[in-house]
């Protein structure tokens, strides 16, 4: 088989740019294989995260030909091979080196979310059909591609006000757990800024686990927030009492 040019971002916090590498194609090759070939033979210090190589751990996220993807799941033969394949780090997070970005912000957001809290004296019985919809959310492998593509984070950088799709999925998995007893709507509204999402569904499009992030997680959560904070009757009562909206 022939060679292909990989145009890979090399650099760090202080800047950088693309560097071209020629890589020999092998059958069934994925982008991560090509990056490993570069490491082994041309640039041993090329920084890229990876673990499972099977789309189960969500470590090797990158922007391949401008699209956020898992490098381990992106087949070379699905890309146009007559021109260079570009591989860049996730744009929404600061570069540490090459394809490795600083995703620590995500862990900080996650820590704000109250854990699963079962109802007291709960019977540990659940129907599969009730579990099904939550299991969809629990498929998330935390690749952060949804965070990367979300314009609220990517273009507007609102990391202080907004949690991002990944954490709406996590909140949904807790809120819709058949045996959970805690409400997280106030957190959604005030700290995770769910109102900033205008449901463009970019997150759903890039999810490698095919979670219906917008339809099954974000929209139902938005509805919960609206029900609790913007119900017209409740608002009227508040206005009459002169109370500030919570």
């Amino acid at each position: 088989m022939s060679d292909v040019t990989m145009r890979v971002f090399r650099g760090d916090r202080d800047g950088g740019g693309p560097v071209d590498y020629r890589v020999a194609l092998t059958p069934g090759m994925v982008v991560l294989d090509a990056l490993h070939a570069i490491q082994a033979h041309q640039a041993p210090d090329l920084a890229v995260r990876w673990n499972c190589k099977a789309a189960k751990c969500g470590s090797c996220s990158a922007e391949v030909n401008g699209r956020p993807r898992l490098a381990c799941k992106t087949r070379m033969d699905a890309l146009p091979l007559d021109k260079p394949i570009t591989v860049y780090p996730l744009k929404a997070f600061p570069v540490i080196k090459d394809l490795v970005t600083d995703v620590s912000w995500n862990y900080k957001v996650n820590a704000k979310i109250p854990a699963f809290t079962p109802r007291p004296d709960v019977k540990w019985k659940m129907e599969q059909r009730d579990v099904d919809r939550v299991q969809e959310f629990r498929k998330c492998i935390e690749c952060f591609l949804c965070q990367d593509v979300c314009h609220v984070l990517r273009d507007h950088g609102k990391k202080e006000q907004f949690g991002g799709p990944r954490f709406f999925v996590r909140v949904a998995s807790l809120e819709m757990h058949p045996l959970d007893s805690v409400s997280r709507t106030k957190l959604l509204k005030e700290e995770l800024g769910i109102g900033l999402c205008n449901i463009t569904k970019c997150c759903t499009e890039v999810c490698p686990e095919e979670i219906h992030i917008t339809d099954n997680a974000i929209i139902p959560l938005k509805e919960r927030v609206v029900d609790e904070f913007y119900d017209p009757l409740t608002m009227l009562v508040r206005k009459i009492r002169g109370a500030k909206r919570d």
Binding site: Q39, D45, A47, I96
Partner: peptide, 12 residues
């Protein structure tokens, strides 16, 4: 021998 710097260096 390891090339490059100590910054996220998989070869090292």
């Amino acid at each position: 021998r390891v090339e490059g710097s100590r910054l996220f260096n998989p070869g090292w």
